[in-house]
Simulated scan of single mutants.
Amino acid sequence: MALPRSNYDPRRVCVNPFPNFELPFGKYRHAIGIYLAGGLFALANWTFLDAAILSAHAHAPEGDADYPVPVHVTFVDWIPGICSLLGMLIVNFIDKDRIRGEEGFGDSHAVWRARLILFIGFALMAGGLAGSIALLVLKYILAGYEDQFTYYGYANVAQNVALMLSAVVLWIAQSSGGEYEYNLSI
């Protein structure tokens, strides 16, 4: 299917353009996106800290002192979340104009370096998610623990998913025009 020349834009990547969703929030889209990203970030860390605190206070049932608690949250469980957090910080510290190659930066390799650092940030987040899934399967599911102990692994995966979503929402919110930005064209 060929597009008519009047609708053709040589900068387009996709054949069918993405729909332009105009939400009724108007000038508050930027702020709503930032608050939503912050809420996802808080939810992510609260979920994992809840599991860590439950693990620290887990004890044998009353009347059965010989029953040891089979598993606890250790430093290994913290590593995927730390990787995702570092990836999120790296992704959101990058100047968006430098990635697009705008603003006429003097260094010709600046765009390439910015894209490489962006890739490293997303790779850290993906590695954190993959590590949390591997930890869930290897440490909690294959060992056959009860549901109260597999919650620790599910909380770790939920933390990493929410951190990735938070990074994406914050990226989109920061990429959209702010409430004080005016787009003038002649």
Rank of each mutant, 00 (worst) to 15 (best):
G121P: 03
G128T: 01
K139F: 08
K96E: 07
N7G: 12
S176K: 13
N156I: 00
G39M: 04
E146R: 12
S166H: 01
L124E: 03
I82V: 15
I186Y: 12
Q148F: 11
A51T: 04
L89F: 11
G63K: 09
H57Q: 12
Y182T: 11
D147Y: 06
W112P: 00
D66L: 08
L54D: 10
N92C: 02
V71I: 14
A60W: 01
G81I: 02
V73I: 04
S6K: 14
I120F: 05
L3G: 07
I32S: 05
V111Y: 02
F119C: 07
W78P: 00
N7Q: 15
L124I: 11
P4S: 15
L163Q: 04
H109E: 14
R29P: 00
F25I: 13
T150E: 07
E181K: 06
T150H: 01
L184S: 10
H72K: 12
N45E: 05
A52H: 01
S132P: 04
F93T: 15
A126Q: 02
R113Y: 10
G101D: 00
A65N: 03
D64Y: 11
F48A: 03
G131F: 06
Y67C: 09
A126N: 04
L54F: 11
L136V: 03
K27N: 14
A56Y: 08
M164N: 03
N156S: 15
A123Q: 07
I99P: 00
V137T: 09
L89N: 07
L23P: 03
F41I: 03
D107K: 09
I186S: 12
I120T: 07
E103F: 11
Q148E: 15
G121L: 03
P24E: 05
W171H: 12
L89G: 13
L40I: 02
A51M: 01
V168P: 00
A123M: 12
F93N: 14
A158K: 09
F21P: 02
S84H: 01
R11W: 15
I90A: 11
A60P: 01
R100A: 13
S166A: 12
S132W: 00
V137E: 13
G33D: 04
F75K: 09
G131S: 05
A60I: 02
T47N: 01
N183F: 09
V168S: 06
A42Q: 07
E103Y: 13
P68Y: 06
A42K: 04
E146P: 03
G106P: 10
G33C: 04
D107W: 04
D9R: 10
P10S: 02
S132G: 06
I79F: 08
W112C: 15
P17Y: 05
F119M: 13
F41W: 08
A58Q: 01
V111W: 06
N7D: 15
L54K: 12
Y28F: 13
R98V: 10
Q148L: 10
L142A: 13
F21Y: 15
G39Q: 05
I172Y: 02
G106E: 14
P10V: 03
T47F: 04
Y67S: 13
V91C: 08
V13S: 08
E22Y: 14
V157W: 00
H57Y: 14
P68S: 06
A37V: 02
R100T: 08
A31N: 11
G127P: 03
